[in-house]
Nucleic acid binder design. Sequence first.
RNA 1: GUGGGUGUAGCUCAGUGGUAGAGCCCCGGAUUGUGGCUCCGGUGGUCGUGGGUUCGAUCCCCAUCAUCCACCCCA
Length: 430
Amino acid sequence: MSKVQAIRGMNDLLPEQSPLWQYFEGHIQALMSRYGYQEIRTPVLEQTSLFKRSIGEVTDIVEKEMYTFDDRSGDSLTLRPEGTAAVVRAAIENGMLHNQTQRLWYTGPMFRYERPQKGRYRQFHQVGVEIFGLDGPDIDAEAILLTARLWKQLGLNEHVTLELNSLGSNEARSAYRSLLVDYFTAHEDQLDEDSRRRLTSNPLRILDSKNPAMQDLIEGAPQLLEHLDRESQDHFESLKRLLDAAGIAYVINPRLVRGLDYYNRTVFEWTTTALGSQGTVCAGGRYDGLVEQLGGKPTRAVGFAMGIERLVLLLDTLGLVPPELHHNVDVYLMAMSDHGQSQALLLGETLRDALPGLRVQVHCGGGSFKSRMKKADRSGASLALILGEDELSEHTVSVKYLRDDTDQTTLDQPSLVALLTERFPAATEH
RNA sequence: GUGGGUGUAGCUCAGUGGUAGAGCCCCGGAUUGUGGCUCCGGUGGUCGUGGGUUCGAUCCCCAUCAUCCACCCCA
């Protein structure tokens, strides 16, 4: 006997949580629109080769975390493990990068075959931004300002820290990489097992090791920021000045490297200490070489992605969820007996016609009067509208105030609409 | 892939080698047409699954699955 159950690491979003997601997504849509960014939607499935070429053959994501399978014609497809590759593909394919700039955003599910833990799931959701055709630090700053505004709107600004670094040009990064490999190879006996593996896969990652035994060795390693090319240095300095001017606080983290191969120059992360070990809530940077690498004309690009699960969890943990999100009903409308049910349904429709924004729940399913009242209370509604025998014969409705001491009144329909209009002014518009 | 914790009612959790408990939720009543507070009653469990030890296992042992946390990696 096997129970039906969801796939490991893939979660249902339950009604209790969905208002919070809608709240977050609503902020995102409005924010993107205010910065003039346009939404792009791409399929969840792509050719496997797209991710191999962009993320990097030897990264963990490509080597062991992708959901890859052959379709019925034998093509290798992969559920997207991140958003950037697909957006770049779509932008090239649809001719969006010919002498134009693009400021794009997307949201949707991503898939990685990892062990689930707090803030990390096999299907997770990201909101991302990808900007094409702009080379200067000003656009890097804008991307960061946009995220900073979001934190402020959500009340998170006191709880997240901006970490900043520069990886340099692709050439400088690669030169530094060999320097680092030389250094750590010379001290290979002091490397732990993970880092010995990283030596070939992602040597920059060794700098980020959490192993205390290796901290001295890491301290002595060549510094990335001292090996930047001149142009990247200037770019980085300008970015810092722009952030200073905008009053955005940041911490330079020379050990900050991104896991994906395509990053260069500016990289940044917003982190929190409130979520346990999965503290990165938003991360991104420049990927000036990726478009060309995927067959487009050389096009500078910068972008970032944030994890919705982590941000929603953070809002929840910090008690930043507006309490009104939990109320989804304004008025609860009930007949007192099955006899009046038809009238109750009709009155519900009348009210929705008159007040498009009013959230009306009509009692269904019978039950004693006591239980109907109880459901009215539990619905969170502030008013109960009651249709009993007297009301039905007199064509009136009784209004009972569930959350304050106002006396119950009995009204005709026009007066009821007037009362509701006054009490729920926002409800006159959808 | 590695390590540790946890699986008992819809939810949060007690519990004992001898046939299963509380609180919340839900339903009904005290209160013929009035919720919240209180009181009373009721519904609801193959104790994750499979095997082993035992006269007897929800409890002990093994395996397995799920879940949580951490490592790795990442949003």
